[in-house]
Each structure stands twice: as C-alpha cells, then as structure tokens.
Amino acid sequence: MAEQVTQARSTRSGPGRVLIAVYAVFAVSAAGRSLVQLGTKADEAPFPYVLSAIAAAVYVAATVALARSTRRSRQVAWSAVLVELVGVLVVGTLSVVQEDWFPDDTVWSRYGAGYGWLPLVLPFAGVAWLLHTRRAAATTRPAAQHDPADGGSTESAPPR
C-alpha cells in the first residue's frame, strides 16, 4: 500500500474540507478587495491596503497548502496559519490603539469584527486542525488502519 502517503492524515479530508472552503472564501475576497484597493486608490491609505494585501497572500497560501495536503505543504500551512494568527492579533490591536493609522479598514481591523470575527476564529481553527491531523498521523502508524472517512464517528457517538 502507499504507506508513505498515508503517514499523516490528509488536511483536506473530513472537517478539513469545510475549513479549506472557509479559507478559500477569505482568500478570494481578501485578494479581490486588495487588488481593487491597490489598483484604484493605493495612495489613499497605503498602510492598511498593504496590510490587506499581506492578509490576502496569507489566506491564499493557507488555502492552497491545506488543500494540497502534502508533507511540504503542511509546513507552508503551519507558517501561513501562524502568520495569520500573529497578523490578526497585531493588526487588530493596532487598529484599536492607533486608529489614525487606519483611514480605511483591513480584513484584520478590530480583530476582523467587520467579517463576523471569522478572521480571529480562523487561525485557531487552522492550528487546531493541523495539530489534530498530526496526532492522527502518529496514532495511525502502529495501528496501520487509516480511516479515510470522518474520524470523529466513534468519538461523537452518544454515551448510551
């Protein structure tokens, strides 16, 4: 069997599928917004617009890396998700403390409040999923039984 391929649980299977869908939505919307901002009015608010572009790049990287789900892309996904976490916390704080630096909003302004706080939740979900799939990889090796379906089926069974 293709043992080396199934060493780590795929980040694109199970709940990861939903996570990637949400990341893709943010990748497309942040990239689109950023292109319009930098393309039509870059000089109006360069600082937030550059931050928007960085956020867009991070979302695109996270989406592609999680969806590719190779060993190499796992590292890229880790970097993207951690940069995203730091970004939303730092930019979120700056947007509250230094309001005059932000004549226009970025995705991460006020911790993503303009996007239903999802930009704040998303990196935590990403870290949790990467940790979960890593642990699944460690436990599947001795058992040699890799369940391609939703791994939570036995966990979520009611107690009685």
Partner: peptide, 29 residues
C-alpha cells in the same frame, strides 16, 4: 461574479468528500 460562482464551486468541492463534512461544505457556500 462572486455570487455567480460560489455555489457551483462549493458544490464541486463538496462532491470530493463523500462524508457529512462534504455536505457541510455546501453550508459555507
């Protein structure tokens, strides 16, 4: 255009995962 493509794209992504997670992808779209 975004509104035009979001449902078909999430549907394609959902079909690739034949579990309830795949169905949940549709909710996102």
């Amino acid at each position: 255009i975004g509104a035009l493509v979001v449902v078909p794209l999430t549907a394609v992504w959902a079909v690739g995962e034949p579990t309830r997670s795949g169905t949940a992808v549709l909710v996102v779209g």
